[in-house]
Each structure stands twice: as structure tokens, then as C-alpha cells.
Amino acid sequence: MEYTWDFKVILDSFPLLLRGLVVTIELWILAFAIGLSLGFAVSLARVSSRGWLNAPAIGYVEIFRNTPVLVQLIWFYYAFPIVLGAQLSPFTAAALSLTLNTSAYCAEIFRGGIVSIARGQWEGAKAIGMTRAMTMRRVILPQVLKRMLPAFTNRGIELAKVTSLASLLAVNELMYQGRLLSSTYYRPLEILTVVALVYFVLIYPGSYLSARLERRLAARD
């Protein structure tokens, strides 16, 4: 087992890996920002007492949670364009499926938070004439957002990891660049290890933050 590591390869490939990292981050920001807002909308439908809003929202959430995310990516890249009648670029297909996937999980986080608030809070707000929307914004959300923060951070971490699947659609993000470089130089050990480490450096602060948040919130209760 006399393997000689070639560190020069790592230095040579670093600029391309960084370029991949930028695409990873772009994908992450896009999917997280839209996924959060869309997830909130879905959660509103999910907590609605109207069946025609509620049932599709349940279906939406369950479909995304009960199928592998890679299958979702593949479906949006290869199958969806057929009903759409237009080809999607790999980046668009990846961003779209990751956004929808994230929104389904975020919807469940929002829903959990919203239903955790006692009914009395809704009634207290109603009794002074506040509308449902006002109550949500001024009374319910301010009380639950802090509590939901660790769950959202975890979702962000999962999303950061899942962006790597876009490489399988040939989106030129970090993992894709890593695979490309490792076959170009034929140095998969060095390059894939470095790719793993870059992801670690990117994601670890998030999970450290999430663990601390969780402990702080637990201590306060």
C-alpha cells in the first residue's frame, strides 16, 4: 500500500473546484429562498379547513417526501419537459426540483409550528378584530419562528448536501467539477477527498450553529 499522494493535482484543480462551489452556492440560495416562501404558502393550504386546499397540499408534501430526491431531479429533467413542451437546462431542472423538494419539507416545518400555537392565541387576536392574515403575521409567526429555526437550519444543511446530485444532470457545480477533474487527471483519491473536505467546510458551520441553537432553545424551555 505504497500510495504516493499527488498534492500538485489538488492545487491545479482548485480554481475549477471553486468555480463549481460558486454554482453550488447559487443553487442553494435559489432553492432555499424560493423553497421557504413556497413552503409557507403550502403550509397555509395544509392547515386550511377547506378540503380542496388541504388535500392537494397533503398530496404535494407526501409525494416529495416519499420519493428519492434523485428521482425527482431526473423526472424534472427528462420527463417534465415532455408535458411542458420545452427543454429545461440542467441548472433550471435541478433548481426547480430542489426548490419544490425543499418547499415540501419547509411546509411541514411551518405547519408543525403553526399548529403548536394554542387556539387561544387565534381567539385572542380574533376578539380584537384582527384578520387571519394579520394574526398570522403579528401573533403566530413571531412566536414560532424562533422555535422553528433549528429545523430550518437542518433543512438548509440537507439542501446543501443534495445540491451535489445536480452533478448527475451535468450541472457544473462542485461535485461535477470534482468528477470531471478526477477523470481528467486520473487522480480520484486526491480530488474526491478534497471535494469531500470542501463540502465539509461549507456545511459544518451550519450544523454547528444548528446544534448550538437547539441547545440554547432547549435550555430556555
Partner: peptide
């Protein structure tokens, strides 16, 4: 916990055998 699963798949398939 802080690295993507796909990296592990490729690492075990392409990198570890070299090592």
C-alpha cells in the same frame, strides 16, 4: 453528517480502491 452522500458513493467506488 456534513458531506453529501453522492461524494461517499464515488469515493468508495473510485478513490478507495486506489488506496
Amino acid at each position: 453528517r456534513n458531506t453529501p452522500p453522492i461524494v461517499h458513493f464515488f469515493w468508495f467506488f473510485y478513490a478507495l480502491p486506489i488506496l
